[in-house]
Every structure is written in structure tokens, then in C-alpha cells.
Design a protein around this nucleic acid. Sequence first.
DNA 1: ATAAATACGACCTATTTGGTCCTGTATATT
DNA 2: AATATACAGGACCAAATAGGTCGTATTTAT
Lengths: 134, 134
Amino acid sequence: MLKITRKVEYALIALSQMQLKGDESLTSVKEIALQNDIPYELLAKTMQLLARAKIVEAVKGPQGGYRLKQDPSKIKMTSFFEIIEGPMGFMDCSFDSDCEQIRSCSIRTPIQRINDSIREMFNNISLNDITRAV
Amino acid sequence: MLKITRKVEYALIALSQMQLKGDESLTSVKEIALQNDIPYELLAKTMQLLARAKIVEAVKGPQGGYRLKQDPSKIKMTSFFEIIEGPMGFMDCSFDSDCEQIRSCSIRTPIQRINDSIREMFNNISLNDITRAV
DNA sequence: ATAAATACGACCTATTTGGTCCTGTATATT
DNA sequence: AATATACAGGACCAAATAGGTCGTATTTAT
Ligand code: SF4
Ligand code: SF4
């Protein structure tokens, strides 16, 4: 419960490695997957999500790979999570809304407040807070 | 992702109703399930977890039910979550530790910090913060 | 041409979550 | 004593999500 997914972890590990290598150089999925013992195909698909979201830039062909496209300190973790996993909410009704209990629900308001606190917390954590070295 | 479970929501709804009725009176699972359109058996099992954890006290037999046993403002949400769902952690290695990547993992420390922040946040929210009326 | 790299959808498997069923025990009421 | 009501708890099943694989297309450096 309240656990991060593997896809998110793999993406963070990848970006962390890429930052180590410097902003200009390219890093291939194969390289990251091998070095970190991560399933290649899964990481590949995740990197594609980041590429579509312009977090990262793809270069095709031999010697190709990905490089950072945005400043990681400007990317909120909420955005990052939602790029990879879709809408994030503490309970169903925070983004989905067809909950059976929604009429009589006595806890919706207080739970919504917690939901907001969590979002705020992750709005104030940047990608760089996690992926920067040391 | 990062979503509360139905069992937790059902338990919170139940306790919220029980607080409305006052500390002395008994409330049966049937009553809560019907009023809130919650699956009876599932709520029943969840209440049993709370009873084992002494959050709530059970009275068997006709006219029986549950009543609060502890002051909800003294119960941390972290405890509450873990009573119902077991160990809570932002990633596997925060309680389980047999992660393949654990040797080379470059994000473990910063992610652990976030894990700690989340726990601290829920340590500072009491059950009563959610279940008290208005 | 070839090989190396990303792009992407379809698909499968494993795990977790959500829910049901059944049997047992305690007890208030009659 | 018999009965009906309520909790106790394990076994089981179903749905949803997460995790992972495969196949095929496209781009491009060599
Ligand atoms: S309405 Fe209540 S029960 Fe339904 S998702 Fe929202 S908080 Fe949960
Ligand atoms: S070691 Fe790294 S990859 Fe493994 S669970 Fe911990 S944070 Fe995630």
C-alpha cells in the first residue's frame, strides 16, 4: 500500500545514471538495463513515455540513446509520476468520481485534504532531488 | 498509484459513523454496511482486524456490535494503515529488502528520505482528524 | 546493406486487491 | 432449552493492477 511502482523506480535509476554522465552525452536503454539489472523492454517503454513528455530527448540509430531535455530541478515529482502512471490520487473519487459511496460518504472531505497534502508534498520535490548524485 | 485501499476507506467510514453515535453505544457491521452500501463480509473482516488491534471492542450476540476502545485522536494513521494492510513502505526495500537492485541502486537514499517524510506526515495525522464529524 | 538504436502496440503472467462463502462461537431474548 | 443475532476467521474466488515479453516498424551511423 502507498508504494511506488517499478516503472517509476526504473525511470529514476535511469535518469540518475544519465545525470552522472553529463547533459550532452547519450545513454542507451541497453546500457542502463545491463548495468542495473533492469528488464530491458520495460525500461525501454518507460523511457518512451518520458520522451513523449519531452523530459528526455531520443536519438535513433547506432550510438544513439537518450539525453536530458529539461532541467530536472524544474520537474515536479507529481508530473513525473503522472507521466509514467497516469492520474494519481489518494482515493478513487479524487480523479475518477464514479464511486458508489460518493453520496453518503462521510470521510470524503477530510480524505481529500490528505490527498491535497500529498500532492503538495510531491509538488515541492523535484526530479533532481532524487536523481542528483550525492 | 499511491492510492488508499477500499478496506481502509470502509474502516474509516465505519469509525466515523460510530463516533457520531457516541462512545458508549454499539454499532453492528450490518448497520454500517447497509447504510453505506459497503460489502458486509469485507467490512466485517476489516472490523475484526481493528478488534484484534484493540482499536475497537466487540460485543457478541443479539444487540451486539462494536464500540470504540481507544481515543481516536491518539491513534496515528500510520498504525491504522498497518493494522489493516500490513507494513507500509514507499518502495520494497523499505521493509522487505530482497530487491535485486539493492546493491547498485543509486536512488535508494533519496527515495528513503521521501519514504520517511510520508511516514512522518501520517504519524502526525490522527484517526480522529479523519473520522470526527465536521 | 547492415546493425544498432528508439517506437509502439499486443499480449501474457504474477501479484495485489476486492469480494464471497462457510463454519464456528458467544449471548440476549423468548 | 431453543432460537436468532452478532462477531471470528479461514478458504476460496474474481477483478484489477503491475510487471514483463514479443514482434514489427522506423531511423540512422557505419
Ligand atoms: S466518495 Fe468516499 S468512499 Fe468513495 S472514493 Fe471518495 S472517499 Fe472513497
Ligand atoms: S533498492 Fe532501489 S530499486 Fe530496490 S526497492 Fe530499494 S529503491 Fe527500489
